[in-house]
């Protein structure tokens, strides 16, 4: 039984994949739109049938006509509900990452080419739906929240685009794969000692062209040095051509290291590192990050935090 259901589900997804292949940009057309009466639609038809029976029994042609009008209206609603979705263009836009276990958000841009598309509902599986309307030629952007379960890149599944406008008697929908992914940072795990090493062992490295925070000294001019860095004043005093040396401040530079968290499973290590990244960032410290598959040069500020978190999110992913 279970395997049967799985087979059906696989067949369905395979079919969907062929029918609506993943793409960053999807134009909804008749191949991609499904349509089916809603519960109210059935209720409406029931009323029409009741009126039909009444019309037959009372031999009342107007009652029959009214019932036919309701049915015709229903048929017209098929066209209108379909049209409300047809011609809508969906484009995957930017992404707002979040911590694993919380929510992230993905931006979807909705464009209308020719006619208005009103009251369109969009949502990823398992997430609340958002309503949007676009007028002809208009473009709207919508942030849709995504439940982030694991660390790493996350595919939110197929976006469900649904509309019942105008009459609510029918539901037209499409399941589009916008090839959109949301980044999930590791869930911060507090506790433990700061898995960091001070930077004393790094002093030998020459930091000549990186940053210019602190004047370090002069050395003799080497062809190729930027003229900007030539100490013209000393040259004027006849001390020859010298180039100014600058360096990063050595103290307060911390390396958060994967290797300093032995004995934990990888996800815990990422969680710890994440926690410390946030901690250090909050204190405004400079820090670097060393992971088995790469390292981030020390730095501080929001950009550094962003980079560190991204690295933590993507670490361990092949490719």
């Amino acid at each position: 039984m279970k395997s049967l259901r799985r087979t059906v589900s696989e067949l369905w997804h395979g079919w969907l994949q062929r029918r609506i292949p993943p793409s960053r940009q999807v134009l909804l057309d008749q191949r991609r739109i499904f349509i089916f009466p809603s519960a109210y639609g059935f209720f409406f038809l029931l009323i029409a049938v009741l009126l039909f029976v009444g019309g037959i029994n009372y031999e009342n042609n107007l009652l029959l006509g009214f019932s036919f009008l309701l049915v015709s209206l229903f048929l017209m609603a098929i066209l209108h509900t379909f049209r409300n979705l047809a011609g809508l263009k969906l484009v995957a836009a930017s992404m707002r990452p979040g911590f694993a276990g919380a929510r992230g958000a993905l931006e979807v841009r909705i464009l209308s080419a020719h006619h208005a598309h009103l009251s369109i509902w969009l949502h990823w599986p398992g997430a609340p739906a958002e309503e949007v309307s676009v007028e002809p030629g208009e473009e709207k952007s919508l942030w849709l929240s995504v439940q982030l379960l694991r660390r790493g890149r996350q595919h939110p599944g197929r976006l469900r685009v649904e509309s019942r406008y105008p009459l609510g008697l029918l539901r037209s929908w499409s399941l589009v794969d916008l090839d959109h992914t949301c980044l999930a940072w590791p869930k911060p795990l507090s506790g433990g000692e700061c898995p960091a090493s001070g930077g004393d062992d790094d002093t030998g490295v020459n930091h000549q062209d990186r940053g210019s925070e602190e004047f370090e000294g002069l050395r003799s001019y080497v062809a190729g040095d930027s003229l900007r860095l030539v100490d013209w004043k000393s040259y004027a005093r006849g001390r020859g051509l010298n180039t100014k040396q600058f360096s990063d401040p050595a103290e307060g530079r911390l390396w958060l290291e994967w290797n300093r968290l032995p004995g934990h499973d990888p996800e815990t290590r990422y969680g710890r590192l994440c926690y410390w990244v946030l901690q250090l960032d909050q204190r405004g410290e400079r820090y670097g990050l060393r992971l088995p598959d790469g390292e981030l040069e020390p730095g501080s500020g929001p950009l550094q935090r962003e980079r560190a978190l991204e690295m933590l999110a993507l670490s361990g992913e092949s490719g």
Partner: peptide
């Protein structure tokens, strides 16, 4: 508009 479009269909049914 919708009712206007539905009327020809209704006449056919009728």
């Amino acid at each position: 508009t919708m009712l206007g479009q539905a009327i020809p269909l209704m006449l056919v049914f009728f």
